[in-house]
């Protein structure tokens, strides 16, 4: 079914891809409205990269269909390639070419005339703050600079859809912030972005919508807030001055909380999920004070996407790292 590219930029229906006995994608439906960012979240081996490779025509699915910018990925891969920019997990930069030459080459391969490719390369060099390094071979670049160059390469043809496969994996905090800034700019220009990441914080920061996949299946979908709401309310945490006060603290928290409280003897920390955060916090402190329990630290935390992941999959996002990608 052809769809209007002005409303839905990317769409998949029941995508399946298997490698031997492993179902890398097990019937994934996905939709990204034009101009929005979808964060595809999951541990290594969840199927993120397989999804990216199918949408960028690098891989054919076993079954199911996919459209990018209105073009069928299987029937018209070349039209898809003209509409997308891909920036990969490993910056696909030619180390021996200069930054400028890398971008010029990509422009020429998108079919731009030499003059147009030169202009575009210069624009992007300036925009990505690579002017000082433009004429140095890319092998002299830092990790962050390489990543910026790779991102710039994805934008050469001003694609309507940009696919970013783990754009900040392996970057230092500074490089990560830089990359986030670039992605935010892209979004404000109206580009549709599919972003895969293992970092919950990253999806939280950048994505309008988040899709969590694990073992090839979609296990949750929605905005960051909606996903957090699935886990429940807030988490009340407090630390008592002396370990002997832990039983009293547990009793109080089990009264004010909505779930079973837990305690850690070593750090003297007690925590519980609560529905009405501030109210429960005041109540807990008042009762602890009445029982003469001295509290050294207290906090009310909204659940992180880590909590979401843990509650959805039964394991933390980091746990399966190092498995097959």
């Amino acid at each position: 079914m052809p769809i209007s590219a002005t409303e839905v930029a990317v769409r998949t229906e029941a995508l399946v891809k298997t490698y031997g006995a492993t179902r890398a994608l097990d019937g994934v439906d996905l939709e990204i409205p034009a101009g929005k960012v979808l964060g595809l979240l999951g541990p290594n081996g969840a199927g993120k990269t397989t999804m990216v490779r199918i949408l960028t025509t690098l891989l054919r699915p076993d079954s199911g269909r996919a459209w990018v910018a209105g073009h069928d990925v299987l029937a018209d891969p070349n039209a898809v390639r003209k509409s997308i920019g891909l920036s990969g997990q490993y910056a696909a930069v030619d180390e021996n070419l200069t930054g400028y030459e890398n971008l010029y080459m990509v422009g020429r391969l998108y079919g731009m005339k030499p003059a147009a490719a030169r202009n575009r390369a210069q624009q992007l060099i300036a925009r990505f703050q690579l002017s000082d390094a433009a004429d140095r071979p890319a092998k002299t670049y830092s990790g962050g600079m390489r990543r910026r160059l790779d991102l710039a390469g994805a934008l050469v043809a001003e694609p309507t859809v940009v696919v970013l496969d783990e754009p900040t994996t392996g970057l230092d905090p500074r490089g990560r912030m830089d990359t986030w800034e670039v992605i935010s700019e892209l979004v404000s220009d109206g580009t549709t972005v599919l972003l895969t990441t293992q970092y919950l914080e990253e999806a939280d920061q950048l994505a309008h919508n988040i899709m969590v996949i694990d073992k090839g299946k979609v296990i949750a979908e929605g905005s960051a807030d909606e996903l957090k709401a699935q886990v429940g309310g807030e988490r009340l945490e407090l630390v008592v001055a002396d370990a002997s006060e832990l039983p009293t603290a547990l009793r109080v928290l089990s009264d004010v909380g909505s779930g079973q409280p837990s305690a850690d003897e070593h750090t003297r920390r007690v925590e519980v999920l609560v529905d009405a955060g501030p109210k429960a916090l005041i109540e807990a402190l008042r009762r602890l004070d009445a029982e003469s329990v001295s509290v050294t630290d207290v906090g009310l935390h909204r659940p992180t996407l880590d909590d979401v992941f843990l509650s959805l999959t039964g394991h933390a996002a980091e746990e399966t790292q190092g498995g097959a990608a």
């Binding site: 690098l58 070349n78 990969g88 030619d94 990509v106 391969l109 390469g153």
Partner: peptide, 10 residues
């Protein structure tokens, strides 16, 4: 990953 980039280009 250069081949991947080439293969994703028209």
């Amino acid at each position: 990953g250069i081949i991947d980039r080439f293969r994703s280009l028209p």
